Measured scan of single mutants.
Amino acid sequence: LVRYRTISKIPQITLNFVDLKGDPFLASPTSDREIIAPKIKERTHNVTEKVTQVLSLGADVLPEYKLQAPRIHRWTILHYSPFKAVWDWLILLLVIYTAVFTPYSAAFLLKETEEGPPATECGYACQPLAVVDLIVDIMFIVDILINFRTTYVNANEEVVSHPGRIAVHYFKGWFLIDMVAAIPFDLLIFGSGSEELIGLLKTARLLRLVRVARKLDRYSEYGAAVLFLLMCTFALIAHWLACIWYAIGNMEQPHMDSRIGWLHNLGDQIGKPYNSSGLGGPSIKDKYVTALYFTFSSLTSVGFGNVSPNTNSEKIFSICVMLIGSLMYASIFGNVSAIIQRLYSGTARYHTQMLRVREFIRFHQIPNPLRQRLEEYFQHAWSYTNGIDMNAVLKGFPECLQADICLHLNRSLLQHCKPFRGATKGCLRALAMKFKTTHAPPGDTLVHAGDLLTALYFISRGSIEILRGDVVVAILGKNDIFGEPLNLYARPGKSNGDVRALTYCDLHKIHR
């Protein structure tokens, strides 16, 4: 019993810090008490220290592992850092350059016999395009090294910054494609005289377009951006097909006994025919423009016929181009109408809503002055909100995010209106959640004399007048207030005048 009563005193000691020596009952000389009392004092002292730490809000209350900052290894790049964003855009520009100039170089340097010394005699450094290609190869190699040090988000939505895990993730992902696209074939085969082989191998750079397509997928929600990307894709495919079309004609031209190829026909049409040795002929500019003209006309199913396939190889390629053109029509131009419709969806919704308003007016036989006010209010409210119901949009977000959005939407009023000066951010967040926005066209009466005042109004834009009878008592403008002081009276009061809008007004109100 003594032991039980001794232990039962522990909660009292913990909360009230009572010393055991003052209790005459606990001072009985028993061996059990002498053993338990020192333990009680020690526990009391420890609990006292913990309570003191909690009340003082000291940093040592938290466990040590929670006080440590997340460790980022040296030379690790955050995937959302500004440097990584700028670097990704730079790589994107280099990939676009590669997609345009690599097929052009591979096709127009394929057994090209233009006048001038061969590239091997001039030297590697004197070729501007080769120098640019070398810079692109170096940048792609540097990009691989950067990807080995860039964080990523795993399946659990955690940012991984450990170098080993980053390397394994990159090896399992895009490393092989990036490595093949970054191989400097110019340096590996330079001086061997195989410019045709170098041009063909350099087309491996186009593998990076797969990554670019995935990154550009984030802009699919913007109709104008999608339309622009589709047109660029169409032009890029036409450019690639033009390079292939020229390569076919250029390879067949020296081996044909009869002059029936499209390059021969082009030379005869523009007065620059090929001679018996295969030299001469149109310039590279004429060849490229004509090839691009043929691919565009074939892809769009126009086909004027002034550039036509004559050999079997050219006919087979033309059939493939027609098939590609039909697929592009289905996948690209078939979506253009939907994209344009999405661009004008706001206008369509406006006309639909206006039609419903006019049908309501016609069905209920609203008189002319009231009908005009109804239409003007709808037009003004639509121009202010673009038909978007803010309350319906915010309803799907958590309250903390709703408060931040409301604070942002009402920031101008909260910053410049005098009653809100000096208020804490928590108070402003709470008030912003209570605001209701209303609009009024010129001549609209917001409050009639004798109406119950259940709200306090803040003028965000425009001006109003307060009338008693036919006498203008006051004219209020931006950041002015009218209405009933909230919670100042037990019952809502009545208006002693009319409140009429002089201009288009936007008002925020808080109800009782």
Rank of each mutant, 00 (worst) to 15 (best):
E64W: 11
E64N: 13
K66N: 11
Q68W: 04
Q68G: 13
P70H: 15
R71W: 05
W75C: 04
L78E: 09
L78A: 11
S81T: 07
P82T: 07
V86T: 03
V86A: 07
V86K: 03
W87L: 01
W87N: 01
D88K: 01
D88R: 01
W89R: 01
I91A: 01
I91S: 01
L94G: 10
L94E: 14
L94T: 14
V95L: 08
I96R: 01
A99C: 01
V100C: 01
P103K: 01
S105Q: 15
A106L: 07
A106C: 01
A106T: 04
A107N: 01
A107T: 09
L109H: 15
L109D: 09
K111I: 03
K111V: 04
E112N: 04
G116I: 08
P117G: 08
P118G: 12
A119W: 01
A119H: 13
T120E: 13
G123E: 01
Y124T: 03
Y124R: 03
C126T: 01
C126G: 01
Q127D: 14
P128R: 03
L129M: 11
L129R: 05
A130H: 05
V131F: 07
V132P: 01
L134F: 06
L134C: 05
L134H: 05
F140I: 01
I141W: 14
I141E: 03
I141L: 07
D143Y: 01
L145R: 01
T150P: 01
N154D: 12
N156D: 09
E158L: 05
V159A: 01
S161A: 09
H162L: 11
P163L: 05
G164K: 13
R165Q: 12
A167G: 04
F171Q: 01
K172Q: 11
G173H: 13
G173D: 04
F175A: 06
L176S: 11
L176N: 01
M179W: 08
V180S: 07
A181Q: 04
A181I: 01
A182F: 04
I183L: 09
F185M: 10
F185D: 01
D186L: 09
L187W: 09
L187M: 14
I189Y: 11
F190D: 14
F190C: 13
G193A: 06
G193W: 11
E195C: 15
E196M: 11
G199H: 12
G199N: 09
L201M: 01
L201I: 07
K202R: 04
K202Q: 01
T203I: 11
T203N: 11
R205H: 06
R205K: 09
R205T: 04
L206Y: 01
R211F: 03
A213V: 07
R214N: 09
R214E: 06
K215A: 04
L216P: 01
D217S: 05
R218T: 08
R218M: 09
R218V: 05
R218Q: 09
Y219L: 13
S220N: 09
E221A: 05
Y222T: 05
Y222S: 05
Y222V: 05
A224Y: 14
A224N: 05
A224Q: 09
V226S: 15
L227S: 01
F228V: 11
F228N: 01
L230H: 14
M231D: 01
M231F: 11
C232Y: 01
A235H: 01
L236C: 01
L236D: 01
A238W: 01
A238S: 01
L241A: 01
A242H: 01
A242I: 01
C243G: 01
C243V: 01
I244K: 01
W245E: 01
W245Q: 01
Y246T: 01
A247D: 01
G249L: 01
G249M: 01
N250C: 14
M251A: 13
E252H: 03
E252D: 01
E252W: 01
E252G: 03
Q253F: 15
Q253N: 14
P254Y: 14
M256C: 08
M256A: 14
R259F: 01
R259Q: 13
I260A: 03
I260N: 07
I260P: 03
G261K: 01
W262H: 01
L263M: 01
L263E: 03
H264T: 03
H264Q: 03
N265V: 15
N265M: 14
N265R: 14
D268W: 10
I270T: 03
K272N: 01
N275E: 04
S276N: 04
S277G: 04
G278M: 01
G278K: 05
L279A: 14
G280A: 03
G281C: 01
P282W: 01
I284S: 01
K285D: 01
D286T: 01
K287L: 03
K287P: 01
V289Q: 01
Y293R: 01
F294C: 01
T295D: 01
T295I: 11
F296T: 05
S298E: 01
L299V: 01
T300W: 01
T300P: 01
S301H: 15
F304S: 06
F304G: 01
N306R: 01
N306L: 01
V307H: 01
V307M: 01
V307D: 01
S308G: 01
S308I: 03
N310P: 01
N312C: 01
N312F: 01
S313A: 15
M322D: 01
G325T: 01
L327S: 02
L327I: 05
L327F: 01
A330R: 08
A330L: 04
S331K: 02
S331P: 03
S331D: 01
I332Y: 06
I332V: 10
N335M: 03
V336D: 01
S337P: 01
S337M: 06
I339F: 03
I340G: 02
I340S: 03
R342V: 10
L343N: 04
L343M: 04
Y344H: 12
S345I: 09
S345C: 03
T347D: 10
R349N: 07
Q353V: 03
R356Y: 15
R356S: 15
R356Q: 03
E359S: 08
E359K: 04
I361W: 03
R362T: 03
F363K: 06
F363L: 11
H364Y: 04
H364S: 03
H364P: 02
Q365C: 06
Q365D: 10
I366V: 06
I366T: 01
N368S: 08
N368E: 08
N368W: 06
P369T: 04
P369N: 07
R371I: 01
Q372N: 06
L374A: 06
L374H: 01
Y377P: 01
F378L: 08
Q379D: 15
Q379A: 08
H380W: 15
H380S: 14
A381F: 05
S383Y: 15
T385G: 07
N391V: 10
A392E: 07
V393K: 03
V393H: 01
K395L: 12
F397S: 02
C400V: 06
L401E: 01
A403S: 06
D404K: 01
D404Y: 01
H408A: 01
H408E: 06
H408T: 01
L409M: 08
S412D: 12
S412M: 13
S412Y: 11
L413N: 01
L413G: 01
L414Q: 01
Q415W: 05
Q415C: 06
K418Q: 06
K418F: 05
A423G: 06
A423E: 01
T424P: 09
G426L: 02
G426Q: 04
C427Q: 10
C427R: 01
R429F: 01
R429N: 01
R429M: 01
A430I: 07
A430C: 04
A432P: 02
M433W: 04
K434I: 03
K434T: 03
F435R: 01
T437M: 09
T438I: 11
H439Y: 01
P441T: 08
P441S: 08
P441E: 06
D444G: 10
D444E: 09
T445Y: 12
T445P: 05
T445G: 02
V447T: 02
H448Y: 14
A449L: 07
